[in-house]
Write a protein that binds this DNA or RNA. Structure first.
Lengths: 317, 317
DNA sequence: CAAAAAAACGTTCAATTCGTTCACTTGATA
DNA sequence: TATCAAGTGAACGAATTGAACGTTTTTTTG
């Protein structure tokens, strides 16, 4: 019945493998956020433990006390086998197993961007292939998406609260219903310290432009997994590009629907079809902004050259 | 359905995740103001519970919201003002405030179905109206949906793990991208003890039928907020109906796209356009199954008459 | 309306946790 | 080498917690 699963310092100390005294000291030093019962007993949220473990490069020796995955198995099997395990778990709709695998990799200090690219996206790509071969049903893929989005929400709440001054927003265009890439982008940007908020899927271009001028983010991302044949993408995109130029937002695009042919006609700040690319861009752009703020001669110029390239890890029903 | 402002210590203890003993002790120490019945039973006012929770920072540790006057107000003034507060929070994209409001209502022991109907759905209906009047932008509505779905996931994990024998699945049809009603249905059914899993949105009829025969749920729900003009809904729906008949699944339908004209041509087990209707159906159907199992003469018959009716609380972009 | 079922009472008791103190290890410095 | 600062783990009595129990009140049911 507990919304936020709370555990005692003793449980955490056993899970991490340190003495209870040390753990209580860390709590009192503020390294771990705690809540107190009316009688003064400390209670620690599991997500806080996860955050702490990851920050401090610790290992969960006995994760079972926290209802977390047995690190012994998962942490070692790494990304490759994690991907195949994950795919079958997603196909079977086994949310618990999916959560275990993902958290396991997350606790093993793998960056979120890598988990997104090489495990989650990879698993969904393979599911898409199976679906093409009639070996998987659409409902399995959809159910898997629901599960994946939930896990990403769980990961999100393990992150430290973002710096509110670095706003980033994004979403998908009209007719593109695939929410996973945009949710991933939100997660990755938050991991990089941005206050990223996904606006959702299937938004009209006019509304996206409106959001840019209203919210005035430093980064705007656009995930394009599908383009409706009926719309003039290039023309509509140009409006977005202009809105970003006017407000000084960095326009980041990605998605498997953006063919090279299409990209040549677009103006943007960066093309990332991998979450790892997005992450590096987020970090560098952060530094760009910081140094621009330093030299207070308001140089609003944003480089418009960056252009990573690889394949896009998505499938579109 | 007790709509009282007073709750018992046991309820409160379960809500905040401590033992009943501790809670009674705190009451006797004066940390929680209580009133007594003639027979000596403690009764605690809802507002007192919310105050206590917020003072102690027990549930929902949110570092930024330590002092949040609007929310503490919101808890007491119940559903009606909760709805208007919620709407502005959703429009502003203030996820923390939304979470506060919803959880205050949840702590106040309002059933999830009521929160869904009279607060969430109601707020979105009003947002839809504002949008029609050009007072709200689509991106605000979408961002609000994202937030709402996240909160519903949070609520979901507060619930006790469901009885795995009572399976229920559901989703939306091809072209219907509105996920909130289906997510609500999942939440409400889980609250009623069902092992409900939403398959997601925009699923082809064939895939829905496949899911029914594969998973063999006891309940199958279908949320219909939008029907593509290009498909023959009645004919396709008949296949779903048959699949449910064959497998003994109770077919529950809802959604504002189901006009009376349409419904007359459909065969289903129950029509619910309100989550409260769905909840009562879930409970009664649970009893039906239990009694059917008792009289082991496998009576697979399912009544096909139930037919609640009101308006459907959804908006479709 | 009375009987049965469910929920809450008050109490007791073992287990857990608190805060504090203290001995020990480690690494840098005089 | 001796010394100091800092972090760790163990131990202690005092306090808190959660579960058990039999009894009483409230609610449900026939």
């Amino acid at each position: 019945m507990e919304m936020s699963d709370l555990v005692s310092p003793k449980q955490v100390s056993r899970a991490i493998g340190v003495s209870e005294s040390s753990l209580k000291r860390w709590c009192d030093q503020g390294l771990l956020q705690t809540v107190r019962t009316a009688g003064g007993h400390r209670k620690i949220e599991i997500s806080e433990v996860v955050r702490f473990v990851r920050d401090r490069n610790l290992v969960l020796r006995d994760p079972e006390v926290l209802d977390l995955p047995p690190a012994s198995e998962g942490a070692e099997l790494g990304l490759v086998r994690g991907q195949s395990l994950l795919m079958s778990a997603l196909l079977a709709g086994n949310e618990l197993l999916v959560r275990q695998i993902i958290f396991d990799l997350y606790l093993a200090k793998h960056p979120i961007s890598v988990i997104c690219d090489e495990v989650l996206a990879s698993a969904f790509r393979e599911i898409g292939e199976r679906w093409a071969c009639k070996e998987a049903d659409p409902f399995q893929e959809r159910r898997g998406c629901e599960i994946a989005v939930r896990i990403m929400f769980d990961l999100r709440r393990c992150q430290r609260p973002p710096d509110s001054s670095l706003n980033a927003i994004g979403g998908t265009i009209e007719g593109d219903q695939y929410s996973i890439p945009s949710t991933m982008a939100e997660l990755v940007l938050r991991e990089a310290g941005w206050n990223a908020v996904s606006l959702g899927t299937s938004l009209p271009f006019s509304s996206l432009a409106r959001a840019i001028t209203d919210i005035r983010p430093k980064i705007f991302w656009l995930s394009v997994s599908y383009i409706q044949p009926s719309i003039d993408f290039i023309q509509e995109f140009a409006k977005l590009s202009k809105a970003c130029m006017d407000t000084g937002a960095a326009l980041v695009v990605g998605g498997r629907a953006l063919t090279e042919n299409l990209r040549q006609k677009m103006t943007y700040c960066a093309y990332c079809d991998t979450m790892q690319h997005l992450e590096t861009f987020a970090h560098t752009h952060q530094r760009v902004i910081a140094s621009a703020a330093e030299s207070s001669t308001g140089d609003e110029g944003i480089e418009r050259t960056t252009n990573h390239s690889t394949h896009l890890p998505e499938n579109q029903p």
